[in-house]
Design a protein around this nucleic acid. Sequence first.
DNA 1: GGAGGATATGTTATAATGTTGCAATGAGAC
DNA 2: GTCTCATTGCAACATTATAACATATCCTCC
Lengths: 165, 165
Amino acid sequence: MTEASTAFPSSDHDHGSCVAHAVAKAEELCRSRGLRLTEIRRRVLELVWERHGPVGAYALLDTLRSEGMAAAPPTVYRALDFLQEQGLVHRIERLNAFVGCGQPDAPHSGQFLICSECGLAAEIDDPAIDRALTQAAVALGFELRGKTVELEGLCPDCRRSGNGR
Amino acid sequence: MTEASTAFPSSDHDHGSCVAHAVAKAEELCRSRGLRLTEIRRRVLELVWERHGPVGAYALLDTLRSEGMAAAPPTVYRALDFLQEQGLVHRIERLNAFVGCGQPDAPHSGQFLICSECGLAAEIDDPAIDRALTQAAVALGFELRGKTVELEGLCPDCRRSGNGR
DNA sequence: GGAGGATATGTTATAATGTTGCAATGAGAC
DNA sequence: GTCTCATTGCAACATTATAACATATCCTCC
Ligand SMILES: [Zn+2]
Ligand SMILES: [Zn+2]
Ligand SMILES: [Zn+2]
Ligand SMILES: [Zn+2]
Protein backbone atom coordinates (compact mmCIF):
# COMPACT_ATOMS: atom_id res chain seq x y z
CA MET A 1 0.00 0.00 0.00
CA THR A 2 1.12 3.48 -0.81
CA GLU A 3 0.01 5.46 2.21
CA ALA A 4 2.03 8.49 1.26
CA SER A 5 -0.46 10.97 2.58
CA THR A 6 -0.97 9.88 6.14
CA ALA A 7 2.60 9.57 7.38
CA PHE A 8 6.19 10.00 6.38
CA PRO A 9 6.83 8.48 2.97
CA SER A 10 8.80 5.28 3.29
CA SER A 11 12.03 5.28 1.33
CA ASP A 12 10.97 2.26 -0.71
CA HIS A 13 7.54 3.37 -1.82
CA ASP A 14 6.73 3.50 -5.51
CA HIS A 15 7.39 7.15 -5.92
CA GLY A 16 6.88 7.34 -9.65
CA SER A 17 3.31 6.12 -9.39
CA CYS A 18 2.87 8.31 -6.35
CA VAL A 19 3.59 11.42 -8.44
CA ALA A 20 1.54 10.16 -11.35
CA HIS A 21 -1.37 9.46 -9.08
CA ALA A 22 -1.31 12.96 -7.61
CA VAL A 23 -1.30 14.56 -11.05
CA ALA A 24 -4.07 12.31 -12.32
CA LYS A 25 -6.16 13.24 -9.30
CA ALA A 26 -5.50 16.91 -9.95
CA GLU A 27 -6.54 16.60 -13.56
CA GLU A 28 -9.77 14.93 -12.67
CA LEU A 29 -10.47 17.47 -9.94
CA CYS A 30 -9.87 20.42 -12.25
CA ARG A 31 -12.00 18.91 -14.97
CA SER A 32 -14.84 18.40 -12.55
CA ARG A 33 -14.56 22.00 -11.37
CA GLY A 34 -14.26 23.45 -14.83
CA LEU A 35 -10.76 24.76 -14.19
CA ARG A 36 -7.67 24.58 -16.33
CA LEU A 37 -4.67 22.63 -15.11
CA THR A 38 -2.33 24.41 -17.47
CA GLU A 39 1.16 23.29 -18.39
CA ILE A 40 2.77 25.48 -15.74
CA ARG A 41 0.39 24.56 -12.99
CA ARG A 42 0.71 20.92 -13.83
CA ARG A 43 4.50 21.04 -13.91
CA VAL A 44 4.69 22.90 -10.60
CA LEU A 45 2.45 20.32 -9.01
CA GLU A 46 4.63 17.54 -10.41
CA LEU A 47 7.78 19.18 -9.07
CA VAL A 48 6.26 19.57 -5.64
CA TRP A 49 5.35 15.90 -5.61
CA GLU A 50 8.66 14.78 -7.03
CA ARG A 51 10.43 16.22 -4.05
CA HIS A 52 7.75 14.65 -1.86
CA GLY A 53 8.50 17.17 0.83
CA PRO A 54 8.47 20.90 1.40
CA VAL A 55 9.87 22.86 -1.56
CA GLY A 56 10.55 26.57 -1.71
CA ALA A 57 9.09 28.74 -4.45
CA TYR A 58 12.51 29.74 -5.72
CA ALA A 59 13.68 26.14 -5.90
CA LEU A 60 10.70 25.46 -8.15
CA LEU A 61 11.56 28.54 -10.15
CA ASP A 62 15.13 27.37 -10.69
CA THR A 63 13.95 24.00 -11.88
CA LEU A 64 11.44 25.48 -14.31
CA ARG A 65 14.15 27.70 -15.72
CA SER A 66 16.63 24.85 -16.01
CA GLU A 67 14.00 23.14 -18.13
CA GLY A 68 13.95 26.05 -20.50
CA MET A 69 10.68 27.58 -19.37
CA ALA A 70 10.42 31.34 -19.33
CA ALA A 71 9.66 31.75 -15.67
CA ALA A 72 9.80 34.58 -13.17
CA PRO A 73 8.72 34.69 -9.53
CA PRO A 74 5.11 35.53 -10.40
CA THR A 75 4.96 32.48 -12.64
CA VAL A 76 5.59 30.19 -9.70
CA TYR A 77 3.62 32.10 -7.12
CA ARG A 78 0.59 32.26 -9.36
CA ALA A 79 0.72 28.54 -9.98
CA LEU A 80 1.14 27.90 -6.26
CA ASP A 81 -1.77 30.21 -5.46
CA PHE A 82 -3.97 28.29 -7.83
CA LEU A 83 -2.89 24.94 -6.45
CA GLN A 84 -3.46 26.11 -2.90
CA GLU A 85 -6.90 27.44 -3.69
CA GLN A 86 -7.81 24.07 -5.14
CA GLY A 87 -6.38 22.27 -2.12
CA LEU A 88 -3.72 20.54 -4.21
CA VAL A 89 -0.82 21.88 -2.19
CA HIS A 90 -0.43 23.25 1.31
CA ARG A 91 1.90 25.97 2.45
CA ILE A 92 4.14 25.30 5.42
CA GLU A 93 4.51 28.59 7.23
CA ARG A 94 7.53 27.66 9.31
CA LEU A 95 9.49 26.80 6.18
CA ASN A 96 8.08 29.20 3.60
CA ALA A 97 7.63 26.09 1.53
CA PHE A 98 4.98 24.07 -0.22
CA VAL A 99 4.01 20.43 -0.16
CA GLY A 100 1.56 18.34 -2.13
CA CYS A 101 -1.68 17.31 -0.51
CA GLY A 102 -2.78 13.70 -0.79
CA GLN A 103 -6.43 14.42 -0.03
CA PRO A 104 -7.33 17.37 -2.24
CA ASP A 105 -10.96 16.31 -2.56
CA ALA A 106 -12.08 17.18 0.95
CA PRO A 107 -11.06 20.75 1.78
CA HIS A 108 -9.03 20.98 4.96
CA SER A 109 -6.18 22.91 6.45
CA GLY A 110 -3.22 20.61 6.84
CA GLN A 111 -1.68 19.38 10.04
CA PHE A 112 2.01 18.73 9.66
CA LEU A 113 4.83 16.91 11.36
CA ILE A 114 8.09 18.33 10.11
CA CYS A 115 11.41 16.57 10.67
CA SER A 116 14.16 19.05 11.44
CA GLU A 117 16.76 16.50 10.46
CA CYS A 118 15.70 15.17 7.04
CA GLY A 119 13.28 17.99 6.21
CA LEU A 120 10.38 15.72 5.36
CA ALA A 121 6.86 16.69 6.28
CA ALA A 122 4.03 14.29 7.04
CA GLU A 123 0.50 15.48 6.72
CA ILE A 124 -1.98 14.07 9.17
CA ASP A 125 -5.68 14.70 9.64
CA ASP A 126 -6.33 14.10 13.28
CA PRO A 127 -9.94 14.62 14.35
CA ALA A 128 -8.90 15.03 17.99
CA ILE A 129 -6.65 17.96 17.12
CA ASP A 130 -9.33 19.49 14.99
CA ARG A 131 -11.91 19.10 17.70
CA ALA A 132 -9.65 20.70 20.30
CA LEU A 133 -8.96 23.67 18.05
CA THR A 134 -12.60 24.17 17.19
CA GLN A 135 -13.67 23.98 20.80
CA ALA A 136 -11.06 26.49 21.88
CA ALA A 137 -12.28 28.91 19.22
CA VAL A 138 -15.92 28.44 20.15
CA ALA A 139 -15.16 28.98 23.82
CA LEU A 140 -13.68 32.38 23.02
CA GLY A 141 -16.35 33.43 20.56
CA PHE A 142 -13.82 33.34 17.75
CA GLU A 143 -15.07 32.65 14.23
CA LEU A 144 -12.59 30.13 12.89
CA ARG A 145 -11.54 30.41 9.27
CA GLY A 146 -8.10 28.89 8.96
CA LYS A 147 -5.92 26.61 11.03
CA THR A 148 -2.16 26.28 10.97
CA VAL A 149 -0.75 23.29 12.82
CA GLU A 150 2.91 22.56 12.33
CA LEU A 151 4.81 20.26 14.66
CA GLU A 152 8.56 20.21 14.43
CA GLY A 153 10.79 17.43 15.67
CA LEU A 154 12.40 14.16 14.68
CA CYS A 155 10.73 11.63 12.41
CA PRO A 156 10.91 7.95 13.37
CA ASP A 157 13.68 7.23 10.86
CA CYS A 158 15.95 10.05 11.94
CA ARG A 159 15.28 9.19 15.53
CA ARG A 160 16.50 5.66 14.96
CA SER A 161 19.55 6.78 13.02
CA GLY A 162 20.50 8.86 16.05
CA ASN A 163 20.60 12.03 14.03
CA GLY A 164 19.61 15.38 15.48
CA ARG A 165 21.84 14.92 18.50
CA MET B 1 -8.66 42.48 36.13
CA THR B 2 -6.10 42.74 33.41
CA GLU B 3 -6.25 39.36 31.74
CA ALA B 4 -4.31 40.48 28.72
CA SER B 5 -2.59 37.18 28.19
CA THR B 6 -5.46 34.75 27.96
CA ALA B 7 -7.72 36.44 25.43
CA PHE B 8 -8.05 39.44 23.18
CA PRO B 9 -7.12 42.60 25.04
CA SER B 10 -10.22 44.62 25.82
CA SER B 11 -10.12 48.14 24.47
CA ASP B 12 -10.49 49.66 27.92
CA HIS B 13 -7.82 47.77 29.78
CA ASP B 14 -5.08 49.68 31.58
CA HIS B 15 -2.55 49.35 28.84
CA GLY B 16 0.13 51.49 30.40
CA SER B 17 0.41 49.24 33.41
CA CYS B 18 0.10 46.26 31.10
CA VAL B 19 3.32 47.26 29.30
CA ALA B 20 5.04 48.20 32.54
CA HIS B 21 4.14 44.88 34.04
CA ALA B 22 5.57 42.95 31.11
CA VAL B 23 8.84 44.83 31.27
CA ALA B 24 9.11 44.44 35.04
CA LYS B 25 8.56 40.72 34.65
CA ALA B 26 11.23 40.56 31.98
CA GLU B 27 13.69 42.39 34.17
CA GLU B 28 13.14 40.06 37.04
CA LEU B 29 13.36 37.03 34.80
CA CYS B 30 16.64 38.17 33.26
CA ARG B 31 18.11 39.01 36.64
CA SER B 32 17.22 35.58 37.94
CA ARG B 33 18.82 33.95 34.90
CA GLY B 34 21.93 36.10 34.99
CA LEU B 35 21.16 37.67 31.61
CA ARG B 36 21.29 41.26 30.51
CA LEU B 37 18.11 43.02 29.45
CA THR B 38 20.02 45.72 27.62
CA GLU B 39 18.60 49.02 26.50
CA ILE B 40 17.84 47.74 23.01
CA ARG B 41 16.29 44.49 24.16
CA ARG B 42 14.23 46.32 26.72
CA ARG B 43 13.03 48.91 24.23
CA VAL B 44 12.12 46.27 21.64
CA LEU B 45 10.13 44.39 24.24
CA GLU B 46 8.36 47.59 25.22
CA LEU B 47 7.50 48.38 21.62
CA VAL B 48 6.12 44.91 21.08
CA TRP B 49 3.92 45.29 24.12
CA GLU B 50 2.89 48.82 23.27
CA ARG B 51 1.36 47.61 20.07
CA HIS B 52 -0.17 44.75 22.03
CA GLY B 53 -0.44 42.72 18.89
CA PRO B 54 1.75 41.26 16.18
CA VAL B 55 4.48 43.67 15.05
CA GLY B 56 6.87 43.20 12.17
CA ALA B 57 10.60 43.48 12.65
CA TYR B 58 10.87 46.39 10.25
CA ALA B 59 8.11 48.30 12.00
CA LEU B 60 10.14 47.98 15.19
CA LEU B 61 13.20 49.09 13.28
CA ASP B 62 11.47 52.20 11.97
CA THR B 63 10.34 53.14 15.46
CA LEU B 64 13.79 52.69 16.94
CA ARG B 65 15.23 54.88 14.22
CA SER B 66 12.58 57.54 14.67
CA GLU B 67 13.70 57.68 18.28
CA GLY B 68 17.22 58.46 17.21
CA MET B 69 18.72 55.04 17.86
CA ALA B 70 21.35 53.81 15.47
CA ALA B 71 19.61 50.67 14.34
CA ALA B 72 19.86 48.28 11.43
CA PRO B 73 18.02 45.03 10.70
CA PRO B 74 20.45 42.94 12.74
CA THR B 75 19.84 45.18 15.74
CA VAL B 76 16.19 44.26 15.81
CA TYR B 77 16.56 40.63 14.84
CA ARG B 78 19.18 40.05 17.49
CA ALA B 79 16.99 41.58 20.14
CA LEU B 80 14.04 39.51 18.96
CA ASP B 81 16.15 36.35 18.96
CA PHE B 82 17.12 36.99 22.54
CA LEU B 83 13.56 37.73 23.61
CA GLN B 84 12.31 34.61 21.87
CA GLU B 85 14.94 32.42 23.49
CA GLN B 86 13.87 33.74 26.86
CA GLY B 87 10.22 33.17 26.07
CA LEU B 88 9.41 36.87 26.30
CA VAL B 89 8.02 37.09 22.79
CA HIS B 90 6.59 34.60 20.35
CA ARG B 91 6.88 34.64 16.62
CA ILE B 92 3.72 34.35 14.53
CA GLU B 93 4.69 32.45 11.43
CA ARG B 94 1.66 33.35 9.35
CA LEU B 95 2.38 37.03 9.81
CA ASN B 96 6.16 37.15 10.05
CA ALA B 97 5.52 39.14 13.18
CA PHE B 98 6.20 39.08 16.88
CA VAL B 99 4.01 39.41 19.93
CA GLY B 100 4.72 39.69 23.64
CA CYS B 101 4.15 36.65 25.82
CA GLY B 102 2.25 37.13 29.06
CA GLN B 103 3.54 33.94 30.66
CA PRO B 104 7.28 33.97 30.04
CA ASP B 105 8.05 32.02 33.21
CA ALA B 106 6.80 28.64 32.06
CA PRO B 107 8.34 27.76 28.70
CA HIS B 108 5.74 26.91 26.08
CA SER B 109 5.09 27.31 22.40
CA GLY B 110 2.25 29.70 21.92
CA GLN B 111 -1.19 28.94 20.59
CA PHE B 112 -2.70 31.90 18.80
CA LEU B 113 -6.03 33.17 17.60
CA ILE B 114 -5.41 35.83 14.99
CA CYS B 115 -8.14 38.19 13.84
CA SER B 116 -7.92 38.82 10.12
CA GLU B 117 -9.94 42.00 10.52
CA CYS B 118 -8.26 43.97 13.32
CA GLY B 119 -4.97 42.09 13.29
CA LEU B 120 -4.95 41.34 17.00
CA ALA B 121 -3.64 38.04 18.28
CA ALA B 122 -4.76 36.29 21.44
CA GLU B 123 -2.50 33.76 23.03
CA ILE B 124 -4.15 30.83 24.69
CA ASP B 125 -2.69 27.82 26.46
CA ASP B 126 -5.20 25.10 26.00
CA PRO B 127 -4.25 21.77 27.58
CA ALA B 128 -6.69 19.90 25.34
CA ILE B 129 -4.95 21.17 22.22
CA ASP B 130 -1.58 20.36 23.67
CA ARG B 131 -2.67 16.88 24.62
CA ALA B 132 -4.07 16.20 21.16
CA LEU B 133 -0.85 17.34 19.51
CA THR B 134 1.34 15.31 21.83
CA GLN B 135 -0.75 12.18 21.34
CA ALA B 136 -0.67 12.51 17.58
CA ALA B 137 3.12 12.78 17.67
CA VAL B 138 3.49 9.81 20.01
CA ALA B 139 1.21 7.71 17.84
CA LEU B 140 3.51 8.26 14.86
CA GLY B 141 6.77 7.82 16.75
CA PHE B 142 7.62 11.46 16.19
CA GLU B 143 9.85 13.19 18.74
CA LEU B 144 8.13 16.50 19.33
CA ARG B 145 10.27 19.59 19.76
CA GLY B 146 8.22 22.56 18.71
CA LYS B 147 4.58 23.31 18.08
CA THR B 148 3.06 26.00 15.91
CA VAL B 149 -0.66 26.57 16.35
CA GLU B 150 -2.13 29.60 14.66
CA LEU B 151 -5.85 29.96 14.14
CA GLU B 152 -7.08 32.67 11.86
CA GLY B 153 -10.55 34.15 11.86
CA LEU B 154 -12.71 36.86 13.39
CA CYS B 155 -12.37 37.98 16.99
CA PRO B 156 -15.57 38.50 19.02
CA ASP B 157 -15.42 42.29 18.62
CA CYS B 158 -14.99 42.29 14.86
CA ARG B 159 -17.64 39.64 14.58
CA ARG B 160 -20.12 41.87 16.40
CA SER B 161 -19.18 44.94 14.36
CA GLY B 162 -20.04 42.95 11.26
CA ASN B 163 -16.61 43.50 9.81
CA GLY B 164 -14.89 40.88 7.70
CA ARG B 165 -17.91 40.57 5.40
C1' DG C 1 42.34 49.45 38.63
C1' DG C 2 44.10 47.34 34.45
C1' DA C 3 44.46 43.18 31.25
C1' DG C 4 41.89 39.78 28.97
C1' DG C 5 37.86 37.19 27.42
C1' DA C 6 33.10 36.92 26.60
C1' DT C 7 29.02 39.27 25.26
C1' DA C 8 26.73 42.73 22.80
C1' DT C 9 26.36 46.24 19.20
C1' DG C 10 27.51 48.98 14.80
C1' DT C 11 27.82 48.77 9.92
C1' DT C 12 27.67 47.31 5.27
C1' DA C 13 26.29 44.37 2.15
C1' DT C 14 23.57 40.68 0.44
C1' DA C 15 20.32 36.78 0.45
C1' DA C 16 15.73 34.94 0.40
C1' DT C 17 10.95 35.48 -0.16
C1' DG C 18 6.96 37.68 -2.12
C1' DT C 19 4.17 41.49 -4.78
C1' DT C 20 2.50 45.12 -8.19
C1' DG C 21 1.37 46.71 -12.60
C1' DC C 22 0.74 46.40 -17.15
C1' DA C 23 1.23 44.45 -21.70
C1' DA C 24 0.67 40.32 -24.57
C1' DT C 25 -1.23 35.89 -25.39
C1' DG C 26 -4.47 32.24 -25.67
C1' DA C 27 -8.68 29.53 -24.77
C1' DG C 28 -13.62 29.21 -24.74
C1' DA C 29 -18.41 31.56 -25.80
C1' DC C 30 -21.33 33.23 -29.17
C1' DG D 1 -14.41 35.10 -36.76
C1' DT D 2 -14.76 38.17 -32.96
C1' DC D 3 -15.32 39.17 -28.16
C1' DT D 4 -14.20 38.37 -23.55
C1' DC D 5 -11.88 36.79 -19.83
C1' DA D 6 -8.46 33.97 -17.75
C1' DT D 7 -3.69 33.16 -18.08
C1' DT D 8 1.07 34.23 -18.87
C1' DG D 9 5.37 37.30 -19.80
C1' DC D 10 8.05 40.63 -17.99
C1' DA D 11 10.19 44.35 -15.34
C1' DA D 12 10.50 46.51 -11.42
C1' DC D 13 10.01 46.68 -6.61
C1' DA D 14 8.80 45.47 -1.66
C1' DT D 15 9.47 42.89 2.41
C1' DT D 16 11.79 39.86 5.45
C1' DA D 17 16.09 37.93 7.10
C1' DT D 18 21.15 36.86 7.38
C1' DA D 19 26.38 37.01 6.74
C1' DA D 20 30.65 38.91 7.85
C1' DC D 21 33.58 41.65 10.26
C1' DA D 22 34.81 45.62 13.07
C1' DT D 23 34.01 48.02 17.46
C1' DA D 24 32.38 48.70 21.92
C1' DT D 25 30.96 47.29 26.51
C1' DC D 26 30.66 44.45 30.44
C1' DC D 27 32.66 41.23 33.85
C1' DT D 28 36.17 38.61 35.99
C1' DC D 29 40.45 37.85 37.75
C1' DC D 30 44.61 39.33 39.25
ZN1 LIG E 1 6.16 9.50 -3.18
ZN1 LIG F 1 13.66 12.85 9.49
ZN1 LIG G 1 -2.29 46.07 27.08
ZN1 LIG H 1 -10.70 41.62 15.34
